[in-house]
Amino acid sequence: MIISTFYCLLFNIPLIFLAMRFSNLSIIQYMEKIFGKYIGKVLGILYGLFFIRVAIHYYYIEIQMIRTTFMDELSPIIIILVLMIVSIYEASRGLEVSVRTVEFFGPIVVASLILFIVLGFNNIDLTVLLPIYEDSTLSRINMGAIEASLIFTDPNLLSMTFPSLSNKKDVVKIVVKSKIYSQLIIILMVIATQVSLGVEQARHSNFPFLTYVRLVRTYSIFERIEAAFLVTWLIIVTTRSVSYLYISSKAFKEVVNKKT
């Protein structure tokens, strides 16, 4: 995960460079300039479809999570209706609403995640951490890091919303900072989960951090807190899917030259 930070920043250099080069255009608009009108439009459609697909995947995971662990008899159609109505409404209200939602929930989510990690301290056994540099090879570690770096899609969102930014000068600093902060939290979560469940068992678990939270039993006060985790997790995933829906719809609008 630590090495993946480097790869992630490396892979996003072209996107950030292009965004700064065409600072008044979104990725769809400057793709038309680079590749020509028709290829640009095709790429724009693919871009929109890709994020629609990611959003659908997120909804699928949300439904899986809710139905597997909490409301196992609740009809999926109800979950889809609730999630879709909320997300589509929020995405339709524009970028500012989405960003303000993130601004509001961000500190709550980060604080909750750190709290969940801390509360599970009594399940932690550091002896499960084995010498990975000896057991593995450099190429395998790098392949894993590259795979992990692909999770970070925020610069793709940024390349679509770049023209709306007021402070375009500091974009590199912001991307690097956001990557490091998010990576720190992810590393903490991964380590806590692996030393609590075991490296292999964490790999076999569909929702490893949920299992970690299910194990929390601290001072007989904090226990069975997975419902609180579900709320936090739903906020994270819903805000992500809202942003994917937003940029996807914006991409299609720009492809067909529809003015908002």
């Binding site: 056994d125 499960v128 075991g198 068992q201 299992t211």
Partner: peptide, 9 residues
Amino acid sequence: IAEKYRYYY
């Protein structure tokens, strides 16, 4: 159960 599977593999 969780502890057992922590070392199971």
